[in-house]
Computed example of a mutant assay.
Amino acid sequence: MSSLFTINCCKSFGCHNLGLARSPDYTWPDYRLGYAALHCRACGSNPPLFNDAEFRIWASAGLSDYAKESGHFCPACYQKEIIRYGHNPGGTQRVQCLHCKKVWTPRQQLTPIDPPEQLATIPLIVPFQGASADQQLYVLLSFDAIRGNVLHISSNFTPHPAGDSLLYRWHGMGESADIHNDIIQRVNQRETEFLRRSQFDEIQYGSAALKRNASGAVLRPVIAAHSHFRVLKTRFPEVAEHIVAHECFLRGAVITAWADLFRHRRGALWFVEEDIKDTACSTPWQLLGKTHQGWWQNQWQLWGQSDNRKMVCLLTKAPLEKGATVTLAASHRFITWLKEQPEFTHSALFSAGRVTKILASLARKYNALLSLTS
């Protein structure tokens, strides 16, 4: 299986099997945690098993469709070496892949951007009109953490056929919606919620039932996350620093997508939880303390900046003092802007597919505005 679609593998930083689809150290299925898992004897980890055939079929269709739409890479071989190749009869730019020679016409205007030094990703729950009121999509948004532009938006709605094992099923009991005022307790609350799940990546975020006879499907958020980061990995294979909101399966999806980078210890991956009261504050961040949290007893740093607080957790290897520069500020700015857009505030009136397209359109609008002010 191509490493681009590897999903059943060791996901432990520091293990020589990280990201490898095959290893003599693997045994599966292993049920010691109560669900089917892969057991890596080299590091003792037990990542949940997925139906890799169903994932590959679905993910390859989604990746190809994204490439046809955007023109960022080839929809056939996924290579990035592309040249302009004349125009179609309607005057629209065609492109050709230099590897497999495929020619196609992207549906969007080609807009090259500089690759990011830091990639920041957050989830967002967005209402949509479905089988009943209060249906919700699990949306992932990724940003250039330094420049601030949106690099990719995706949701767990898919227009492509998806195997049964990939689908999201709401069991009627979600995780706590209450956010603790104390940031340290908030981190601890999230870690406790992870442990309450049937497996670490099996999030229950709310009902997401489509209208009867509606086309498409709603995916498990962990499946959508793996696909989301495959797109970004194909576009930006060398990005070495990743900042993600505190959600355990986002870590697994990032470290799997960029496994070669992390296996050779050339990448840094951070969890971040922030409590920002003064966005204009420019005083230096000060390290206020450290604590260990969760199943893995990861070390978290508490940083302060006037009334602002943030907790950062280094999940790989990097200088700990870099925690002062790690932030999700780009996402905060976009979300503030997004909540002012009528199309977004009325999302509960639109289908899941329409909401996904609206979000992508708003991201392009935001990036265009950002380029005018930079």
Score class of each variant (00 low, 15 high):
67 A>H: 08
67 A>E: 03
67 A>I: 06
68 K>W: 13
69 E>C: 08
70 S>L: 03
70 S>H: 03
71 G>P: 00
72 H>D: 15
72 H>A: 09
74 C>P: 10
75 P>C: 07
76 A>V: 13
76 A>Y: 09
77 C>H: 04
78 Y>I: 07
80 K>F: 07
81 E>P: 00
82 I>P: 06
83 I>P: 04
83 I>Y: 12
83 I>L: 07
84 R>H: 09
85 Y>D: 01
85 Y>W: 09
86 G>E: 09
86 G>H: 01
87 H>T: 12
87 H>S: 15
87 H>I: 15
87 H>R: 08
88 N>I: 15
90 G>N: 00
91 G>Q: 12
93 Q>S: 14
94 R>A: 03
94 R>E: 12
95 V>D: 01
95 V>S: 00
97 C>M: 08
98 L>Q: 15
98 L>R: 13
99 H>N: 11
99 H>W: 12
101 K>F: 10
101 K>Q: 00
101 K>E: 06
105 T>E: 11
105 T>Q: 13
106 P>I: 11
106 P>N: 10
107 R>E: 05
109 Q>H: 05
109 Q>M: 04
113 I>D: 12
114 D>L: 09
114 D>W: 03
115 P>K: 12
115 P>M: 02
118 Q>D: 05
119 L>H: 07
120 A>R: 02
121 T>I: 14
121 T>L: 11
122 I>R: 02
123 P>H: 08
124 L>K: 12
125 I>Y: 03
125 I>F: 07
128 F>I: 10
128 F>R: 02
129 Q>V: 11
130 G>K: 05
130 G>H: 02
131 A>Y: 12
131 A>H: 13
131 A>K: 08
132 S>M: 13
133 A>N: 11
133 A>P: 08
134 D>S: 03
135 Q>H: 02
135 Q>L: 03
136 Q>F: 14
136 Q>P: 02
137 L>D: 05
137 L>V: 11
138 Y>W: 15
139 V>D: 01
139 V>F: 01
140 L>S: 02
140 L>M: 14
140 L>A: 00
142 S>E: 03
142 S>C: 12
144 D>T: 07
144 D>K: 04
144 D>W: 02
146 I>G: 09
147 R>T: 14
149 N>D: 04
150 V>N: 07
150 V>H: 12
151 L>F: 06
152 H>C: 05
152 H>E: 00
153 I>A: 07
154 S>W: 00
155 S>K: 00
155 S>G: 01
157 F>K: 02
160 H>V: 01
160 H>W: 07
160 H>L: 06
161 P>A: 06
163 G>E: 03
163 G>M: 00
164 D>P: 05
164 D>F: 05
164 D>M: 04
166 L>N: 01
168 Y>F: 15
169 R>W: 01
169 R>I: 14
169 R>Q: 15
171 H>D: 14
171 H>S: 03
171 H>T: 12
172 G>F: 09
173 M>G: 11
173 M>I: 04
173 M>C: 11
174 G>A: 14
174 G>E: 10
174 G>K: 08
175 E>N: 09
176 S>N: 09
178 D>S: 15
178 D>A: 13
